[in-house]
Amino acid sequence: MSKFSLITKGLLKENPTFVLVLGMCPTLATTTSAMNGLEMGLATMFVLILSNIVISLIAPVVPDKVHIPVYIVVIATFVTVLQLLMQAFTPDVYKTLGLFIPLIVVNCIILGRAEAFANKNGVWDSALDGIGIGLGFTVSLTVIGIVREILGSGAAFGFKFISGDGILAFVMAPGAFLVLGYLMVLFNKIAKK
C-alpha cells in the first residue's frame, strides 16, 4: 500500500465510523455540535497515533499471551497523559467532553488498530495509519456534529444563521442515532455506486 493511501483510506474505504462502525459511543455522545465533534476526533487521533507508534515498536518483544494487557496499559497511559494535558491547557474542552476522554481507553478503534495494523507493521507505516484512521474519525464526527448543530440549533461551529430554536430532538440523544443512521444510508448510496 502506498504511503498516500495509508492516510486517505480512513476517509472512505476504511472509514472508522461509517464502514468499520467502531467507536460508536463517543461518536454519538459528543457530536452535539460541530466543534465538540472536532475536538473529540482530535483527542482520539492523538492517542491513536501515539499508541500505534509505541505498539509497533514493542510488538516484536511482547509475548503473545500478554499482548492485550500490555496494549491496554500503553493506551491507558496515553489517555491519562492526554487527560492531564487537557486539564492543564484546555480545561473548558475537558469539561465539555467530560467522561468521554477517559473512555478513549475502551474505544475499539484504538485497540482494533493496534491488533489489526500496528503489531505487524513498521513504526512509520503505523504512524501514518494512525493519522489516516484518526483523520477519518475526526472528519466523520465533525460532519455528524455539523448536521446535528444545524438541525438542532440552526448554527454551525457556533455561528447562528437560522434564528429560533431548531429541532431540539437533534441535540438530544435520539437525534444522534437518527443523524448517524441517515448519514450511513447516504454514505452507502454514494460509496457503493
Binding site: 462502525v21 440523544a173 435520539p174 443512521g181
Partner: peptide
C-alpha cells in the same frame, strides 16, 4: 431499501426508541 439494510435501519429504530424514552 438496500442502502438502509443492516445498521442504518437499526440506528434509526434506536433513535425512535430513544425518542420514546425521552
Amino acid at each position: 431499501p438496500k442502502a438502509f439494510k443492516g445498521l442504518p435501519i437499526a440506528l434509526i429504530s434506536v433513535g425512535i426508541m430513544a425518542l420514546a424514552f425521552l
